[in-house]
Design a protein around this nucleic acid. Structure first.
Length: 671
DNA sequence: GACTCGAGTCCCGCC
DNA sequence: GACTCGAGTC
């Protein structure tokens, strides 16, 4: 084993609780994978080992590395999955006990918005006091704190809180009647099962003898309790984490869990990893300097050996120029055969940033993969078709039905929809169940009546067909019969726009086809669940994806746990990193942004470039930007008046004309 | 009921 | 810029 003494210590520590405190690039994931291999060597059955990660990408990588170590021939494999996938599997087995159907639906952000909108309408809060987005955010906060709908009102202080609490109750009722759960529910319901049913806890905890948790600093309270419940019996719990990389505070992660570990597991062994093998000394110097600005942290300084180039700062006129410059550089280095496309990562703060880079990458004919960012499934046309698929799986899916009840237009207007909804609410039934009565309802125009009949007939017929017609063929036929392509062509007159939307329809059809091909018994419901979790549980698919020699484009959050020879961190501006929401929130929010920046910087092995645009489009207007405060911190310019201005302290010296220009040059790096 | 137009709002990140 | 909502018109 080519491990250093500390790593070896962590890997070979006998069973029992183990806490690995590790800095960035010290081989955390390596320790987990080697430990899995070591356990198997010690005759632990692979299937009795469970390793949990936070992102799909991290799970993919870990699975890949573990298989490389233990050999692909093993029939039984260790289970390596994200928290949420793990919970889905537990829930699939026991959801009935909580009154949910086996084939519960998982609602994503878009679905949630539909439900939230309905809930707000029901309590007549449509005057804008509380909008769907904010409601979802508030519900998320309640859920991560395990506050149930009936208890939420007790925590309310303002009118808005009470309104949100009432909407939360409606929201949760809607989910329940639709047999659906949101992402937070996946965790909450799993915990409920484990706490409330001893036999379920016994069965689920009994599936594994060893539990390993990567990125432990990012567990929230619910995840923490699930881990505890699963490991309490065998106590073979190995957690690995770094407080400097805690970047999920916004969804309830608490660094405290990592500190509390020793108290909950008193016999736990603690191993520290402090030698960084990933990055050059120069990159690490910047990272260390940056993270030192956070006050609340365990002071640690990463040691390292390798030397390399100093990181660079690239200053561009606007975001288009930024994309051009970055992609141009990558293309040049690939052409000069210095690097392969897969050696590069472009890291962004938000999901909106990649667009400009995608355009450039396509133009440069560089292969790329966009990791995460549900953007494809956020598209209107994709959501429409997905809604139809949801109706096929479950006609009582209210959100889906209301979305497409008149798409493509079939004469069912708002008044009719309202009438239907009222009748349904009055009868305590889902809208689908009262569609049959529409013929007898007063005040429904003939056209609407006919439209309702056609829709009902269409869904019923395709549901029937779904029992024997192959999935891909079924969906193709549905799109055809809906005349959805024609509808798109009618609405979007602009050819580029139209083609892009038609292409998205084709892409969706292709992904249904791919799913059907690799799944033994493909179903509409199965496809929907997979999309909701955006997991592709097929090894072939995964290997193909990882081997694809492509530039990786993703958010900083998604990049955690990964590494690349060359990293471009783009959009290094106030408002983006740190994000303006974090800045206005105050408190520890900016510290978390700093950790996020730290995570990005430490992804780079040899070459790091930070870029910024002097002006950036926001909401349709180009606006001037200000360099990120982190650029000053990274480069040791905390005494720069521009920095003090950025962090809101009064500059000690007012910038003069000449001085301003000089500082601008200084802030863009010296090289 | 369908369509157009203007006003107002908006999204941070992941599963 | 993109989207939704409401008002107004056909």
């Amino acid at each position: 084993m080519d491990l250093n003494p500390a790593q070896r210590d962590a890997v070979t520590t006998p069973s029992g609780p183990l806490l690995v405190l590790a800095g960035a690039g010290t081989g955390k994931t390596r320790v987990v994978t080697y430990r899995i291999a070591e356990l198997i060597r010690r005759r632990v059955r692979p299937a009795r080992i469970l390793a949990v990660t936070f992102t799909n990408k991290a799970a993919d990588e870990m699975r890949e590395r573990a298989l490389a170590l233990i050999g692909r021939k093993l029939r039984a494999r260790p289970e390596i999955s994200t928290f949420h996938s793990l919970c889905v599997r537990v829930l699939r087995r026991h959801a009935r006990r909580l009154g949910y159907p086996d084939a519960f639906a998982i609602y994503d952000r878009g679905d949630q918005e539909g439900v939230a909108r309905g809930a707000l309408r029901e309590i007549r809060a449509g005057d804008g006091l509380l909008r769907p987005g904010e409601l979802i955010w508030r519900i998320g906060r309640w859920k991560t704190a395990s506050v149930r709908p009936d208890r939420a009102a007790a925590t309310a202080h303002t009118d808005k809180d009470h309104l949100a609490a009432a909407a939360y109750r409606r929201y949760q009722n809607t989910l329940r009647t639709q047999g659906a759960v949101d992402f937070d529910d996946l965790l909450l319901l799993t915990e409920e099962l484990l706490q409330g049913f001893p036999e379920i806890l016994e069965a689920e905890a009994g599936r594994f003898d060893h539990l390993l948790v990567d990125e432990y600093q990012d567990t929230n309270a619910v995840q923490y309790r699930i881990v505890k419940a699963l490991a309490a019996g065998h106590r073979n719990l190995c957690v690995v984490g770094d407080d400097d990389q805690s970047i999920y505070g916004w969804r309830g992660a608490e660094v405290a869990h990592i500190l509390r570990f020793k108290r909950d597991w008193p016999e736990a062994k603690v191993v520290r990893l402090e030698t960084n093998y990933r990055s050059t000394r120069e990159i690490l110097a910047w990272a260390n300097r940056l993270i030192a600005f956070n006050k609340l942290r365990h002071d640690k300084r990463l040691r390292c050996a390798r030397r390399g180039d100093k990181p660079r700062i690239l200053q561009c006129e606007n975001e288009a120029e930024e994309a051009k410059a970055v992609v141009g550089e990558i293309a040049e280095r690939v052409r000069a055969r210095k690097r392969k496309p897969r050696d590069f990562a472009i890291l962004c703060r938000t999901n909106e940033q990649p667009r400009a880079f995608e355009t450039e990458l396509r133009q440069a004919e560089l292969p790329y993969v966009l990791v995460g960012g549900m953007s494809f499934y956020d598209r209107k046309e994709v959501r429409d078709l997905m809604a139809y698929l949801k109706l096929l799986a479950k006609p009582r899916d209210e959100a889906a039905l209301l979305r497409v009840i008149n798409t493509p237009a079939r004469g069912i207007g708002q008044t009719t929809v309202q009438k239907l909804t009222e009748t349904a609410v009055g009868a305590g039934k889902p809208v689908w169940d009262v569609l049959g009565r529409a013929g007898r309802m007063g005040g429904v125009p003939d056209a609407a009546r006919e439209g309702i009949r056609r829709l009902r007939e269409l869904i019923t017929r395709y549901r029937e067909q779904s029992k024997h017609v192959p999935l891909a063929k079924l969906v193709r036929g549905l799109v055809e019969e809906l005349g959805y392509r024609d509808e798109l062509a009618r609405i979007y007159r602009n050819p580029d726009d139209r083609d892009a939307r038609l292409a998205a329809v084709d892409e969706l059809l292709a992904s249904v086809g791919a799913y059907a091909e690799r799944t033994p018994r493909p179903t509409v419901g199965g496809f929907l669940q997979q999309v909701a979790l955006s997991t592709m549980d097929d090894d072939r698919d995964k290997e193909a994806k990882l081997q694809r020699n492509a530039v990786v484009l993703m958010t900083l959050h998604a990049a955690k746990g990964l590494e690349f020879p060359e990293v471009y961190m783009v959009g290094m501006e106030e408002g983006l990193l740190p994000h303006h929401r974090a800045v206005s929130e105050g408190g520890g929010a900016v510290d978390e942004e700093r950790r996020l920046c730290y995570v990005g910087v430490t992804r780079a092995r040899q070459r790091l470039t930070l870029s910024l645009a002097l002006s950036r489009q926001k909401w349709g207007k180009a606006r001037p930007t200000q360099p990120s405060r982190f650029l000053y911190e990274l480069t040791g310019q905390a005494d720069n008046p521009n920095y003090l201005a950025a962090i809101g302290k009064r500059a000690r010296t007012g910038p003069t004309k000449a001085g301003g220009a000089a500082q601008r040059r200084a802030s863009s790096g010296r090289r």
